[in-house]
């Protein structure tokens, strides 16, 4: 079964049509569904007017679930689907090295493991909605997550300017190119 791809509205389809070359084809397609997010071109949901700000206004966001005995941290995508990265104290791999599954040590170590897994999955920037003053355990989690090399802030979406617009914002994908 081959997926049939159309070039109707590239911002919402999962192809990236790109153009211009000499002897090469004028259009090629990058089918990587995460490509536009990495280039900051993909649509970031704007949310509804009365919604809590930041509820779904991200590409990737970190979510922390606390139950009476265990904690589970996951990275979710605003487009839905199962979370690409998960770490939990329920996992034997983590559980066997912990004294308790919901004390400060568990929270900070869960942050480290999640950060390591995020980088292995190619997610360097995550939106973090857990407020910093929510308690020393959550703070320890956030600190360790940041220490592991993950940026807890997503870059803003690049909006292609209309010809009549005053400014031409810098193209984020050209900034990092060497």
């Amino acid at each position: 079964m081959q997926t049939v791809l159309r070039r109707c509205n590239p911002l919402f389809s999962f192809t990236t049509p790109v153009r211009l070359s000499c002897s090469f084809p004028s259009y090629i397609y990058n089918r990587n569904p995460r490509n536009l997010e990495k280039l900051c071109i993909a649509r970031k949901p704007a949310g509804y007017h009365l919604e809590r700000p930041g509820k779904y206004q991200f590409w990737h966001s970190v979510r922390l679930e606390r139950s009476s005995r265990h904690i589970t941290a996951s990275v979710i995508h605003s487009g839905g689907g199962s979370p690409p990265v998960t770490a939990s104290t329920k996992e034997w791999a983590l559980r066997r090295w912990l004294y308790s599954t919901n004390d400060v040590g568990a929270y900070s170590n869960l942050g480290r493991v999640l950060g390591h897994r995020c980088l292995a999955t190619g997610i360097q920037e995550i939106h973090c909605d857990l407020s910093h003053d929510s308690g020393h355990k959550t703070q320890a989690f956030i600190q360790e997550l940041e220490k592991s090399g993950v940026t807890l802030k997503e870059p803003p979406q690049y909006v292609n300017p209309a010809p009549s617009d005053r400014e031409r914002p810098e193209k984020p994908w050209l900034v990092n190119e060497n």
Binding site: P17, L20, S21, C22, S23, I28, N160, W173
Partner: peptide, 9 residues
């Protein structure tokens, strides 16, 4: 030659 592509907005 090596091609240079750009996203087709």
């Amino acid at each position: 030659s090596s091609p240079v592509y750009s996203y087709d907005f």
